[in-house]
């Protein structure tokens, strides 16, 4: 697993100051009382064939970021650029037919393989549906051929096209979902906790499949997971999200062993380890996750941070680069000596 060369970095996707706010409405008249700032001023880039891992606690905005990046949600503000050959497409400006056409480049795989398929449709219809919607096939024979080819790529068989989703196991259903995402030959796939609902022994099959497909078709992934060991296996770089903001982005091993943000430190120290003996001296995170409708001033992490200074309560730190690969949003990044994981490679 080689690291990306940042000098020749030509991102497939660039996200600039992206925001997604959900309105909070109350009462009979649905009066607007505020906003949930689910994604708040996010900047990031993903290179072609790269896997960017995205971690963070529940409610931190990971799914919202993934969905907004592929325009399943309309952004509240900011820009998303997508490189298509030599052209740079501004996704945020695409509307109507143009957007619909462009969508085939971007797909999503969800956590729950039990609710993301249509139970009343056969595998042929479930997987082939995107081809029909996009008017990309001219005959039933062509539909069958393309679906069968894709099913075989994900390890399913020709006979399976006539079966209904309920007759498959969880792992097989996730394969069907992957086939559905794959059939339009997308450049970019958001994997939103794709193995969290699967049994441990099935996870390996799906993770290996996603890796092989990436190799074969040059796909780029945003890989969302709360499981650090899964992210370590999949990602080239890791981004950490907290309360709608990216707090740290770095190459995988660098982030795991030398975190620069206090939240990342706390997150890593909480990861259960298979090393023997009970560990002492965890940087245990106290307090509750922030209320996204009512975020603290200054640094969003300051109420739970072990290192808070006065400046943290007043000024919001921005994501900035410490070196060319390592970005962090913490006022004290240069002075703190944080503890990462020993990963014994």
């Amino acid at each position: 697993m080689e690291m990306l060369n940042r000098d020749t970095f030509t991102p497939l996707i660039s996200v600039r100051n992206l925001k997604k706010y959900f309105p909070i409405q109350r009462g009979f008249l649905r009066k607007l009382v505020g906003y949930v700032r689910a994604v708040d001023d996010v900047n990031l880039e993903i290179e072609e064939r790269e896997t960017l891992g995205l971690v963070g606690e529940s409610g931190s905005g990971k799914s919202t970021l993934g969905r907004t990046m592929i325009r399943l949600y309309d952004p509240t503000d900011g820009q998303i650029f997508f490189r298509d050959g030599d052209k740079i497409i501004n996704l945020t400006e695409l509307e109507g037919e143009e957007l619909r056409k462009f969508r085939k480049n971007m797909q999503i795989i969800f956590q729950d393989p039990f609710s993301s398929l249509n139970e009343r449709m056969t595998v042929l219809e479930n997987v082939g549906d995107p081809l029909i919607i996009n008017g990309l096939i001219s005959s039933r024979q062509e539909l069958i051929e393309q679906v069968v080819e894709t099913l075989q790529q994900v390890g399913l068989r020709r006979e399976d096209i006539r079966r209904y989703p309920h007759s498959f196991s969880g792992g097989q259903r996730q394969r069907i979902c992957i086939a559905r995402a794959l059939i339009l030959k997308p450049k970019f796939i958001v994997c939103d906790e794709p193995v969290s609902a699967l049994d441990v022994s099935i996870q390996a099959q799906i993770l290996n499949l996603l890796k092989d497909l990436q190799e074969q078709f040059g796909i780029t992934y945003l890989f969302i997971s709360h499981d650090i060991s899964v992210v370590r296996y999949m990602a080239d770089r890791i981004a950490v999200m907290y309360a709608g903001r990216l707090v740290e982005v770095a190459p995988r091993d660098e982030l795991l062993t030398h975190p620069l943000h206090p939240y990342t430190e706390a997150l890593l120290s909480a990861v259960p380890r298979t090393v023997m003996g009970r560990r002492k001296g965890r940087a245990i995170l106290t307090g509750d996750p922030p209320d996204p409708a009512n975020l603290p001033t200054g640094c969003v992490f300051h109420v739970r941070c072990r290192y808070t200074r006065d400046i943290c309560k007043e000024e919001q730190p921005n994501l900035r680069s410490i070196d060319s690969n390592h970005h962090v949003s913490c006022h004290l990044a240069e002075t703190l000596e944080l503890k990462g994981m020993e990963i014994h490679v």
């Binding site: 697993m1 441990v200 022994s201 099935i202 996870q203 390996a204 099959q205 993770l207 290996n208 499981d227 650090i228 060991s229 899964v230 370590r232 296996y233 795991l256 990861v271 380890r273 298979t274 090393v275 994981m341 020993e342 990963i343 014994h344 490679v345």
Partner: peptide, 18 residues
């Protein structure tokens, strides 16, 4: 089972599903 599960430490090796 052990070989099929991703780990946070040690050499990164391809997982072997059961």
């Amino acid at each position: 089972l052990f070989r099929s599960i991703p780990k946070v430490e040690g050499k990164l090796e391809r997982l072997v599903p059961i």
